[in-house]
Design a binder for these strands. Structure first.
Lengths: 137, 137
DNA sequence: CCTAAATGCTCTAGTAACTATAGGTTCAAG
DNA sequence: CTTGAACCTATAGTTACTAGAGCATTTAGG
């Protein structure tokens, strides 16, 4: 049986976060010691590692909740799991594309200024005047 | 003089967001009509457009607050504005790089499964077992 | 056995940047 | 003069935690 601190070290999830996940119902309430401290068995560690890994990949707790629910029914079709992961992949790609557009504009804004006072600083003017950029955001 | 709704349409910032920015002190409290409704003059529109554009570029309200402060003093050196924009550019590039790593792993996870039940679904297993991935996150 | 340090407990509030809702008021057009 | 759109304030909810206060338990050393 692991204490909450040992579980935290084993999974890389911080102690307050474990308690937070418990309150959200993502992990089960564990057994308690005589002094009311949480004691975890092996399955809790696996479940928490699952959550950790999925969070690292950027999945929302809602998506993770669904995946956990699916994983409890090994006989169910897994199409839904593919939908969730696929949707997240698409969202990730869209976000990358958006950030790349922003990167291009930020690079343009920051590179074009060689003056030294705010009054004619290109950075400030570019931010103030939307017309100076591609305008695609 | 614009009503708050007209200002919202002119800048693309939603009405509740304008009031929110006012409460944060990002924009000045405007004059009011006899019936206590907000009435805006031209400068408010420019300032709000500045904020909007900077937000679209992903700058935090804190960073925007600093830039607004700088823009009020046209004679000050603009090195600080370059630092803010440059830091944001670097953060954006780092975020893109991170998302691209996640994209690669998500693509790997979602592509490798051609079974049909949860029990042996690659998506679920890949999330449960950190050892199956590159492990660089 | 006793004590001190580390770890644990609950609860509340704070973070970013809004968004939504409730319940009421004002404005402009017909 | 009435109606409907737009306005007002204030509070609470969103996401995924994190920080802090104030107190209890566990464990290792002496």
């Amino acid at each position: 049986m692991l204490t909450i601190g040992e579980l935290a070290r084993a999974t890389g999830v911080k102690v307050p976060t474990i308690r937070y996940y418990e309150k959200l119902g993502l992990i089960a309430e564990p057994t308690r010691s005589e002094g009311n401290q949480r004691r975890y068995a092996g399955p809790a560690r696996e479940r928490l590692s699952f959550i950790r890994h999925a969070r690292d990949l950027g999945l929302s707790l809602d998506a993770i909740r669904e995946l956990l629910h699916l994983s409890e029914n090994p006989d169910m079709p897994c199409a839904e799991a593919h939908v969730i992961a696929g949707a997240h992949l698409a969202a990730t790609r869209a976000r990358i594309a958006q950030l790349q557009r922003l990167e291009a504009e930020l690079a343009r804004i920051t590179s074009g200024c060689d003056t030294s006072t705010i009054g004619d600083c290109h950075v400030i003017h570019a931010l103030a005047d939307h017309g100076l950029c591609g305008g695609d955001h």
